[in-house]
């Protein structure tokens, strides 16, 4: 229990906020982060979709090794990796247990492993592509491939408001605690206390929505005065925003390495089977 408590202490609102923001903005100096968003989109369309249609365990394993490598290169926060692993284990574990109930046997493990590999490749590829792009770069990239300006603005605005959202939520949550009453006894396995906190966590969203709605009013007015609407219609603005985007040597190099690597695992999978 002590370990759980110390973990809970570390996992404060403040900590989650910092991790999230670092994930979004913190690693913009890595090699992958400096690539053009379009390169990453292209790369991702393969690594994010192809695994669904590949059944060779050899190829999947090869791809997995590759995306693990790229993920390490992006220096993503450990919290994200932790959440990912929990998600994958939870998913496969639950399927395994469910299959036993419906007459499955240990033979189920092999197909489950294949599924887990597919999911892992896709998840890690997503992390590589999207965690290394800062929200602005993502927005610029989307704008470049023809997504309306409103979408890319929403992404960068969303991230701008994220810390505020967290702080506000924290304040409301604490308001509940500063006036509420926690259960006298923790109950079996801290059952009562856990229920109490879950209740508060859910309840806090209602005041949060209202206060954010109120804030948004000023933002909308300010956007109006800063020519927000005007910008979406003006092609010159788009050109200015995208002036920085350029596909360079590194982009070609990255794509070339990926293609060469993929070719090598596709070819070797013909000779090696397991």
């Amino acid at each position: 229990m002590a370990a759980a408590k110390s973990f809970a202490d570390k996992l404060s609102f403040e900590q989650i906020k910092i991790e999230l923001l670092n994930t979004a903005y913190g690693n913009d100096r890595t090699l992958i982060a400096k690539l053009d968003p379009r390169t990453l989109f292209l790369w991702y369309t393969f690594f994010g979709i192809a695994p669904w249609f590949i059944y060779s365990k050899m190829i999947l394993a090869g791809m997995l090794v590759f995306v693990i490598g790229t993920t390490i290169m992006t220096k993503v926060s450990r919290l994200i990796i932790f959440i990912l692993i929990m998600g994958l284990l939870g998913e496969s574990g639950y399927l395994l247990i469910a299959s036993f109930f419906f007459g499955g046997n240990l033979g189920i493990i092999v197909p489950l492993l294949t599924l887990t590999m597919k999911l892992s490749v896709i998840s890690l590829a997503s992390i590589t592509a999207f965690c290394s792009m800062s929200p602005e770069r993502l927005g610029e990239g989307l704008l470049r491939i023809g997504v309306p300006g409103q979408v890319s603005f929403s992404i960068s605005y969303g991230y701008r408001m994220l810390p505020t959202l967290f702080e506000e939520y924290n304040h409301i949550f604490m308001s509940y605690r500063l006036r509420g009453k926690s259960p006298e006894k923790h109950g079996l396995f801290y059952f009562r206390t856990v229920i109490y906190f879950i209740k508060l966590a859910v309840k806090s969203f209602y005041p949060l929505l209202l206060s954010m709605a109120k804030r948004a009013r000023t933002t909308v007015e300010a956007l109006e005065t800063k020519g927000g609407q005007y910008a979406f219609r003006n092609p010159a603005v788009k050109k200015l925003k995208l002036a920085k985007l350029r596909i360079g040597k590194n982009d070609y190099f990255f794509l070339l390495i990926s293609v060469l690597y993929l070719m090598s695992i596709f070819i070797s999978s013909h000779y090696v089977q397991f």
């Binding site: 903005y25 929200p135 602005e136 960068s156 605005y157 991230y159 701008r160 804030r215 948004a216 000023t218 933002t219 300010a222 956007l223 005065t225 800063k226 020519g227 927000g228 005007y230 910008a231 003006n234 010159a236 603005v237 200015l240 925003k241």
Partner: peptide, 20 residues
């Protein structure tokens, strides 16, 4: 609530950018 961009310089130059 009037600051809509993530970085200081981006926010300061947001309006002139919007006006092209």
């Amino acid at each position: 609530n009037q600051l809509v961009q993530a970085r200081v310089l981006e926010d300061a130059s947001f309006a002139p950018l919007n006006f092209g």
